[in-house]
Simulated assay, not measured.
Amino acid sequence: MGTEEKTNTCGTICLKYLLFTFNLIFWLAGGAVAAVGIWTLVDKSEYISLLASSAYSASAYVLILAGVVVVATGILGCCATIKEHRGFLIVYFVLLLFIFLLEITAGVLAYVYYQECFPLCYQLSDELRVNLKEKMVNQYQQPGQDHVTQAVDKLHQDLKCCGSNNFTDWRDGEWNKALAGDRVVPDSCCKTPSDLCGRRHHPSNIYNVEGGCISKLEEFILQHLQILGGVGIGLAFIQLVGMIFTCCLYRSLKEEPY
């Protein structure tokens, strides 16, 4: 009898350490997820401002919210483990299961969206083709549109492209009428930006890629969909380990005498 009680106690201690370690990793992962959401809003806000839809900024806020929930869940898991409180363990298990289902759903949706999008990505192209060219040629360097100007310049340089479809887009719109001068493209289209370098549109001087910035943006977003889908599904299955540890600890505590 004494040996059985000792075995249960040792098993419980091992489970507590395992679950506590898992919670620590889970807590750090939640912080990382929230950080990715914040980074998306801060570092990619220029790209987001070029899109009429709020779907992409909303996804960043969802990441931040998910990270906060994961952090809170990890803290609850640590408290439940240290206190050996079965009620907290049940709540913790339910939260893990809820986040698990969300991650599986998000991962599957990202994968399905990628399969439907690739290679033409109709939904994304429709939005970009309607809004990107209009914002570029009509709002670039216009009064009160500094955020659009910065976004377009950053888009040109980061993704190494010029214009929404190609550099000829800059022949139309308000920028060409009033601000271009003898330039055919903005200076940010140049491979080595400098004042008035946009006067030459030769491929040796400017970025001239097939499909323009639209194709580059599509490629950028689709790559991130793949990554997010894979990470979401991968983390979801890792959470299965945490749920198994939680169930085992709950049963161990239930079987031990008080």
Rank of each mutant, 00 (worst) to 15 (best):
M1T: 08
M1K: 08
M1C: 06
G2A: 15
E4F: 05
E5C: 13
T9F: 11
G11K: 07
I13F: 05
L15N: 01
Y17L: 09
L18V: 01
L19C: 09
F20K: 05
W27I: 02
L28I: 15
A32W: 10
A32Y: 13
W39S: 14
L41K: 11
L41Q: 13
Y47S: 10
I48E: 06
S49Q: 07
L50W: 05
L51E: 03
A52K: 11
S53L: 13
S53D: 13
S54V: 04
A55H: 07
A66I: 14
V68N: 02
V69K: 01
V70A: 12
G77C: 03
C78G: 03
C79V: 15
K83R: 14
E84D: 12
R86E: 08
R86I: 09
F88W: 06
I90W: 11
V91R: 00
F93S: 06
F93L: 15
F100E: 00
I104S: 02
I104C: 11
V108L: 15
Y111F: 14
V112Y: 06
Y114H: 09
S125Y: 07
V130G: 05
E134W: 08
M136S: 04
V137M: 05
N138P: 02
N138S: 13
P143C: 07
Q145P: 02
D146H: 00
V152A: 00
D153T: 04
Q157C: 06
D158E: 14
K160N: 09
C162P: 03
S164N: 02
N165T: 11
D169N: 07
W170Q: 08
E174Q: 06
N176C: 06
K177G: 06
L179A: 08
L179P: 02
G181M: 06
D182W: 05
D187C: 07
T192Q: 09
L196H: 08
L196K: 11
C197W: 05
G198E: 05
P203G: 12
N205M: 08
N205E: 15
G211Q: 04
I214D: 03
S215M: 11
L217S: 12
L217R: 05
E218V: 14
E218F: 03
E218A: 10
E219N: 12
F220W: 12
I221T: 11
I221K: 07
I221M: 11
L225Q: 09
G230F: 10
G234L: 09
A236N: 07
A236M: 03
Q239G: 15
L240F: 07
G242D: 07
C247E: 03
C248H: 03
L249C: 04
L249R: 00
R251S: 14
K254H: 15
K254L: 15
Y258L: 15
